[in-house]
């Protein structure tokens, strides 16, 4: 069982710090560029999945349009960087601004939409993502379907790869800490209660409208920042790239596969599925890969309704008891 109180895994902190430090110094060892970009994508998906986890996994509000917040952050950053020819040094503040724009949009959109429950919420978020994409495609100053090119900078490619790798990793660590903190907090307990039964949650004194909105805004902020990094990383963005429905799909699938409502579950789902995704895009044609994803969705719902993490924990819990 997961718990709203933190568990005690001996040495958990030490292991995490060691893993993170070795990941952090990796660019200094000048590894293959492919390797760095692979890990960069893993970090990106961890950020997206953990953010989605806050609203979809904890509160149980399945947002099927979360890619919109990633795209809004990416476009805000790309637009500012290319219009004002900003240097690389401004990536972090501008991306944070992109995150704030995403969060602000989430506040405005979330306020009315979060009154809808279950399937109605899922549908309206899906619509929202499409509407945002169509808006961006048709507003002239965003470059339409052709997209936006960022101003080239004088830094070397290797340096830039390493920079965005570190930035994305930093963001991932922040997101993981935030989600972990929320999981064992009053806020997290309230969100889980909403997922279980919103009427009961309200009758227990949980200000559901307020904390749902808070979770939604937070879950939009981090993807916005990640979108900003990603726009600079790619140096070129277009609506099809940053509003790709496939990203929304992957985020949902990752969290559900790993197990929503716990930071470890979403992390597990995001990491494993990013590698699977990478493997599939390299070795199998896209259609076949997507067919496999489709099967994964069905498999998760039928066989792992609580996710992989819960499954592993229960299995090890049972074994520990059997040994006694």
């Amino acid at each position: 069982m997961r718990s709203i109180w933190p568990g005690r895994i001996t040495g958990g902190w030490i292991v995490s710090v060691i893993i993170l430090c070795s990941l952090g110094i990796l660019p200094l060892l000048s590894p293959k560029v492919y390797f760095l970009s692979l890990l960069y994508m893993v970090f990106l998906y961890v950020v997206l999945a953990e953010s989605w986890n806050l609203i979809g996994g904890f509160a149980g509000y399945l947002s099927f349009g979360h890619v919109a917040f990633f795209g809004i952050g990416a476009y805000t950053t790309a637009f500012l960087m290319s219009t004002f020819h900003l240097p690389v040094a401004s990536v972090l503040p501008i991306s944070l601004l992109g995150g704030l724009v995403s969060a602000a949009v989430a506040l405005v959109v979330g306020y009315p939409c979060l009154r809808l429950r279950g399937p109605y919420f899922a549908v309206i978020t899906l619509c929202f993502a499409f509407v945002v994409q169509i808006l961006v495609e048709n507003l002239p100053f965003f470059g339409g379907v052709e997209g936006l090119w960022l101003t080239p900078t004088k830094e070397t490619v290797a340096f830039q790869r390493a920079l965005y790798y570190e930035l994305m990793m930093g963001l991932m660590v922040v997101v993981l800490l935030v989600v972990r903190g929320i999981e064992h907090s009053r806020l997290g307990a309230g969100l889980i209660a909403i997922r279980e039964d919103e009427d009961v949650a309200q009758c227990l004194g949980i200000p559901a409208p307020r904390i749902k909105l808070l979770a939604f805004v937070l879950s939009a902020f981090f993807p916005g920042v990640a979108g900003g990094f990603h726009a600079c990383y790619l140096t070129y963005i277009s609506p099809v790239i940053v509003f790709d429905v496939m990203i929304s799909i992957l985020i949902v699938l990752m969290t559900l596969l790993g197990g929503g409502g716990s930071w470890a579950g979403a992390l597990l789902g995001a990491v494993s599925l990013s590698f699977v995704n990478e493997f599939l895009t390299t070795f199998v044609r896209a259609e076949i890969a997507r067919i496999l994803y489709g099967m994964l969705f069905i498999g998760v719902i039928l066989f792992l309704p609580n996710g992989l993490w819960e499954f592993i924990r229960n299995a090890s819990f049972k074994r520990a008891h059997a040994e006694r």
Binding site: S3, A189, A193, D197, A201, G205
Partner: peptide, 21 residues
């Protein structure tokens, strides 16, 4: 009866303590 089914008995009650009057 509407327990928060996936939470433990203790968690159910603790949530009331956390958010109640």
């Amino acid at each position: 009866v509407r327990p928060l089914a996936h939470l433990t008995v203790l968690e159910n009650v603790a949530i009331g303590v956390l958010y109640g009057r």
